[in-house]
Amino acid sequence: MILNVIGWFLIYFGAVFLFLGALGIVRFPDVYNRLQAGTKCTTLGAFSAIIGVGILHPAWLAKTFIIALFILLTNPISSHALGRASYRSGVKLWEKSVVDKCKEFAECVEERNE
């Protein structure tokens, strides 16, 4: 009974954050802010929803744990790769951005000048 409640709580928690992450992707103004919302919310949302399924049905716990761990490990890496690629391919920051320290590094800028 108590496992049931915990499982459903985790699933709803995850579902709401997945929704909020998607909303952030629609609302935020530029690529990097969208990446922030997309990465953080979808990682925790998917993690807690998948673990919630594992708790509702304990026979599946091991495999759901592997899937959740995989998402937790790989999602930041893919977002990092996307952010770096979009900076190097010349996507501009939002016009109200405060500071851009990346210009000071030769590695970032060289591909922009081409």
Binding site: L20, G21, F28, A37, C41, K96, V98, V99
Partner: peptide
């Protein structure tokens, strides 16, 4: 992130 998404004025001042 939820607070910043749901706030109508979006209180963000991004930078690198």
């Amino acid at each position: 992130v939820a607070y910043r998404v749901l706030h109508p004025k979006m209180p963000i001042s991004p930078g690198i």
